[in-house]
Design a protein around this nucleic acid. Sequence first.
DNA 1: TAACGAATTGACTAATCAGTCAATTATCGT
DNA 2: ACGATAATTGACTGATTAGTCAATTCGTTA
Lengths: 189, 189
Amino acid sequence: MKPLDTKDKILKAARQLFVEHGFAGTAMGKIAKQAGVNHSLLFHHFGNKAKLWGAVKADIVKDAKVQSTILPATDLKLEDFLQQLLANQIQFYRDNPDIVQLISWQRIEAGNESDIGVTLSEESQAWLDAIKAYQAKGEIAPQHKPEYIVTLILSIASTTALDNNQLIDNEEAYLEFCVAGLVKCFAAN
Amino acid sequence: MKPLDTKDKILKAARQLFVEHGFAGTAMGKIAKQAGVNHSLLFHHFGNKAKLWGAVKADIVKDAKVQSTILPATDLKLEDFLQQLLANQIQFYRDNPDIVQLISWQRIEAGNESDIGVTLSEESQAWLDAIKAYQAKGEIAPQHKPEYIVTLILSIASTTALDNNQLIDNEEAYLEFCVAGLVKCFAAN
DNA sequence: TAACGAATTGACTAATCAGTCAATTATCGT
DNA sequence: ACGATAATTGACTGATTAGTCAATTCGTTA
């Protein structure tokens, strides 16, 4: 078998099991079995468990980076811009359950964050710029810190997508409520 | 030694290690060592690892219920009420890191949530009632669903307390911004 | 003090863990 | 077709895992 085939099969199986059960909860033997591959091949191709975990993390981050949130055009009406932005970000979380899970494992298994979390801050500059553009247009009051606005929006997106919001019967209606609220909140008067 | 002393020592050690490393990442032997107690006593007093984990969860939930968020008085000015509410809830998360961590482990190690999460919904009725009181007073517009309002507030509190908000330089200022925004968002006009 | 039950101990098991290694097989360039 | 290099295999190790159990110690009560 081609080495890439085998390496890929291992990586795929490892990704599934690591995401599902975390580092401590995943056994190399189980990965080998799931990949339909000899136990020793994991060590031959990846060295050891930690390195395989590292390769899986890199793989997940790579996949997530390809489709990271597309910023809506800033010539939209503020309300439409916010609605789009929230919808996109929530969709990103929904489309990339692996990276969401990975961040959770990283946060809870290792005290530090180190590896990831950088992912988001790369594009956060673009978000800040978009907010500033709306401030320049006078649709957002200039006294508000763009950092606070972005944080609040991200906060709504992540909790909506990831928490089990028992009080929400209709997500679309809730997001409409949030968007309308944000517009009022940001408005210059 | 009194059986309660031993049982308590085991429970305390187990709580620390389970919270720190999760179920799969914690070994019974390590718990025994940390408790300064014979390995076999864990099984004598708690049966098996899963039951010990259950006892630890019950212990953490019990502790957290004692100091659950105190609802501010509803005769406060809306702005002060919201500010207090957010501050109290954030303080609750900060004062009870074990239950926060426990919920994280529960969410990530077991796909279901089952056990906890109920914790919050018990008091959420009081929150809803408080919001309705402000609607009756005319300080919150009656067309807003109290469920959406409570969800939004909880969302801000949890992300502020638990996420590593890289864009926030001054938490107090951020919360002031949020409270002012919420007031505008909820306002009847 | 005798005796009874509960607490405690240490030795044990069978399974599973990550990782090693020599031997074998397949691939590929020449 | 040959030789080198890489992939693959299975048997192995030593450590660690959860859990058992008979023997022993301890506290209490009669």
